[in-house]
Amino acid sequence: MIPSDHFVRFYNEVFKALEDKGHSHIVAYWRELGRIQSRELAARFRAGGLQACYDYWKRILKEEDCKGRLTLTEDYFEFRMDRCPSLAKVLDNDASPSPLYCDHCAGWVEPVIRSAGLHLVCDMESRSEPHCVLRVYRDQALARAYERQATLPSHPYARATAKSTKRHAAPT
């Protein structure tokens, strides 16, 4: 049995193995996570809006032993993660961290938020320090404006699109 304490270190190896097979494989996995989570959460977020997001992450903050702060305004919900237990554990590890470890979070959250008609900005801030900021907006223009200030915004699906475009482009 891999202890539940060691799940994220196992997960980190899954990400590395999928990335080794090709970037599209890890993207397909994130899409699957997003599909599963959308089934559970998209309708709730669509109906309850930013308040429902706040309520969900309030529970996660406690259940997953995160250190962070939640803010709810008229325009956005913010989850400021001061210490991510997941990345912290991946870094306390004899195995190397997946370079894309942090992207799995936006990888599943983004499809859920989009399905709910809301707009996500995930600022990873750093891939080697366990803190980040996640904001959900009602208004797309406000989300894009906030994203322009982000230190390290996560775009888990953009790279796949860029690669795919490049792969199918005519040789020059």
Partner: peptide, 16 residues
């Protein structure tokens, strides 16, 4: 692939 991932867990995560 599943066994390959577990092999990495054994050799790298459980390196010690």
């Amino acid at each position: 692939l599943l066994d390959e991932v577990f092999r990495r867990v054994a050799h790298d995560v459980y390196h010690s």
